[in-house]
Amino acid sequence: MHILICEHSIDGIFSGIYEAYARRYGHRNTELALSCNLNSYQLFCEYEEIPVAEAKSRKVSNTLRARFGSEVYSHLCEAISAYESPSARRRSIDKAEAVYKTVVLGLSLADGSKILDQLGNPYVNRVFQLSRSTFNEAHHLLGFLRFSELENGILFARIHPKNDVLALLADHFTDRLPLENFIIYDQVRKIAAVHKSGSNYMLAEVPNGADDYAKHYSDQELEYRRLWLAFFHSIAVEARKNLHLQGQNLPKRFRPDMVEFHSDSSDHPASLKL
């Protein structure tokens, strides 16, 4: 058995898939594994590290897009971006391996766009679960993300997502707010999506954090937060009060980044802090 070790990123896994084909060991004799998952080595296996190679990764992504269609392709990318808890990682199929074997199966089909229907296949099923987890969190954040207007008119949002959803969010907001200058900052991964009015967004690494940058809000910002809080508290029907249901629909982990939960006590509309 040949085990190819690749980096935990879209490019890393795609480079791994490229090499898995290029080496011609046969797919039955090849496995992919993420470097971060490698705790112990198995007997009678050859291990090889695969470096990230952008040109190879691009070839793979072009092939996948052409053969599977953009929908399946984006599901694969979402699966790779998904977060796994350490225990889930130990219990289930390695992510790189799941994507690799799904790709192999998909390319053997006449119509690759149907590959994700084969939920009975354990590799496909794993990809499906992972991609669903990313997609769901991204969909939550489309609503839960909050922009604040800075002194210079730029809209700034901070998020702490489990999965790597920044690109999905930036796509959405570029379409929605084409004329705004905005920044979405993923504080967990220290990456920001920066959008300039009338153009496409860019991803930028922010190793030192964005705290200094996002300190000063515009004059109006406080006013609109106050109005939003007034709305948020007035819209609740007292006779139906149900904090459990609220907790189920809006998990606590999203709340630190949402203005309406900043004061931390949802019963006191008066307490307003920036």
Partner: peptide, 23 residues
């Protein structure tokens, strides 16, 4: 979005928050 004005719509809809009655 149309690139000129603010806004777009998604068919499944988006929830932006949940009030204390859970709605």
């Amino acid at each position: 979005g149309n690139g000129k004005s603010m806004g777009n719509c998604l068919a499944p809809g988006v929830c932006h928050s949940f009030s204390s009655d859970g709605r």
